[in-house]
Amino acid sequence: MAQIIDGESIAADIRREVTAEVAALSSAHSIVPGLAVLIVGSSKDSRTYADMKCNACADVGIRSVLVDLPEDTSEAALVAEVHRLNADPAVHGIFVQLPLPKHINDQKILNEIRVEKDVEGFHPLNIGKLAMKGREPLFIPCIAEACMELLSRGGVSVRGKLAAVVGRSNIVGLPVSLLLLKIRQADIVIAAAGQPMMIKGDWIKPGAAVIDVGTDSVDDDPAELVGDVDFAEVSKVAGFLTPVPGGAGPMMVAMLLKNTVDAVKQGQGICKDAK
C-alpha cells in the first residue's frame, strides 16, 4: 500500500514557519505583509476560495485586503484596480481569483500585476525565467511549488527520476497508448487533468510517487470531492500518494502565504532564508 503524503500536515508546518517569519518581520522591520485578494462576480465557489485565502492570512498574521467587484466590472476598470494595488505600498502580493467573467481576459489581468507582487507566479517574466537555465524567477507558481514541497517533505527524491505530468493540454489529441506508456515508465506522476478518477492503478509504475492536483465534484453529490486519481486502485500500486481532499489543496494556499512573505523580503532586500 502507498504511503500517504499528508498535505494538511505539511501545509500546517509551512504555516507555522510563515507565522514565525511574519512575527520576525514585524519585530525587526515593523512591516506586516499584505495580500490583496481580488474577486469579480458572485460565484459561490470563487467567494468560498477567496474567503479561505483571507482566513488563512489571518491565521498567520498577514493582512488581507478583499477587493470584491461586481460581475459587470469592465476589463478596463479591473486593470485600473490592479494598478491601484500595484501602487499601494501596504500591498506586497496580489491574488486574482479565477475564473474571471467571460468578458474579461484572464491573462491580460494577470500580466498587469507588477512582477514584484506576482505571488501566484503567473507573470510572463516569472514564467520565462522559470523556463530559462541559470535564471531564477521571483516567484514560482503556487501549484508547482506545492507539488515539489509535497514530494520533498513527503520523503520523495526527484534526482534522477523520470516524471510525467498529466494535464489537459497534454491529453488533447494525444494517443492514449502514448500517454499510458509515459505514465507507466514514470517514477513521479503529477495528475492535473481535471477528469475525476482518470488515473487507474494499472497505469502506474509500482512504487511511483503520485501527486493528485485534481479537485473534481462527484455527479450525484457535488459536495463530495475526488481527485484525478482513482485512489482505491492507485494506493495499491504507488509508493507515495496524496489524497483528495487533504493533499495539494491546502499546500497551494500555504505556498501563497509563503510567497507573500517572500515578496516583503525581496522588496526590503532581506535574504529569503532569514527569519
Rank of each mutant, 00 (worst) to 15 (best):
Q3F: 07
D6V: 03
G7T: 09
D13G: 04
T19W: 00
T19G: 09
V22F: 02
H29R: 01
G34C: 09
L35K: 08
S42K: 08
R47C: 02
M52E: 04
R63K: 08
V67C: 05
V67A: 05
D68F: 00
P70Y: 02
D72S: 10
A77R: 15
A77T: 13
V79C: 05
V82N: 02
R84F: 11
D88F: 10
G93P: 15
H103G: 10
N105S: 05
D106G: 00
Q107F: 08
Q107K: 14
I109C: 13
V115T: 14
V115P: 15
E116W: 07
D118T: 04
D118R: 13
P124A: 03
P124R: 05
R135C: 01
P137V: 06
E145A: 14
C147L: 07
L151A: 08
G155V: 15
R159G: 13
A163W: 01
A164S: 12
R168Y: 01
P175M: 03
V176Y: 06
L179P: 14
L180N: 10
K182R: 11
Q185T: 07
A186M: 12
A186K: 10
D187Y: 08
I190H: 00
A191S: 08
G194D: 10
P196H: 12
P196S: 07
M197F: 12
I204N: 11
G207L: 03
A208L: 07
I211K: 11
S217L: 06
D228T: 08
F231W: 04
S235D: 05
K236M: 08
V237L: 04
F240V: 05
L241Q: 07
L257Y: 12
N259L: 06
A263N: 05
A274Y: 03
